[in-house]
């Protein structure tokens, strides 16, 4: 695993990860078989761009917050089997993919926080983990509301 020595390193890494997510969803949008799924992936890509912008501004201003707020974890994605990324995936599958990606990022930052050599770096990682937890929650709530409708 990459060694991080400064907050800049971490943020560069995180910004790059968000860019990869943007690329991932943009590719899915391009290949989507239907107009509505194209819009879904474009929307996901836009959200990732917003995350990236946020990180860039943190890097520039050095202002990041590690709020005490605990982000709820509905753990919906945790028990779902991995779905194949295909050109004609459904919205349900798209949400599963998104939840799982955000969870992986959350775990990564949490692990990095645990291994941080300094307190400052740990805080940066934890704050990033919190961000990812929020992204995941947003997809989980959508899944909870519309897929597990139970009517």
């Amino acid at each position: 695993m990459k060694e991080f020595t400064s907050a800049d390193d971490i943020l560069d890494f995180a910004i790059d990860a968000e860019q990869q997510a943007v690329n991932f969803y943009t590719r899915l949008a391009k290949n989507a078989k239907t107009e509505d799924m194209r819009e879904v992936f474009q929307q996901f890509a836009k959200e990732e761009i917003r995350h990236k912008t946020r990180l860039t501004s943190i890097k520039e201003t050095r202002l990041f917050t590690l709020s005490k707020e605990k982000v709820a974890d509905l753990k919906i994605g945790d028990y779902l089997v991995t779905v194949q990324v295909t050109d004609d995936m459904s919205y349900q599958d798209a949400l599963i993919v998104a939840m799982k990606r955000e969870k992986a990022a959350y775990k990564l930052y949490n692990n990095l926080a645990a291994k941080s050599p300094t307190d400052d770096l740990r805080k940066v990682f934890l704050s990033l983990a919190q961000e990812e937890a929020k992204h995941k929650l947003r997809f989980e709530v959508e899944y909870d509301e519309h897929i597990l409708s139970e009517n």
Partner: peptide, 14 residues
């Protein structure tokens, strides 16, 4: 059931 979220719904948490 978790705390009510912005929409006021309490979502189930394992």
């Amino acid at each position: 059931l978790g705390e009510p979220d912005d929409s006021g719904r309490r979502r189930p948490v394992p």
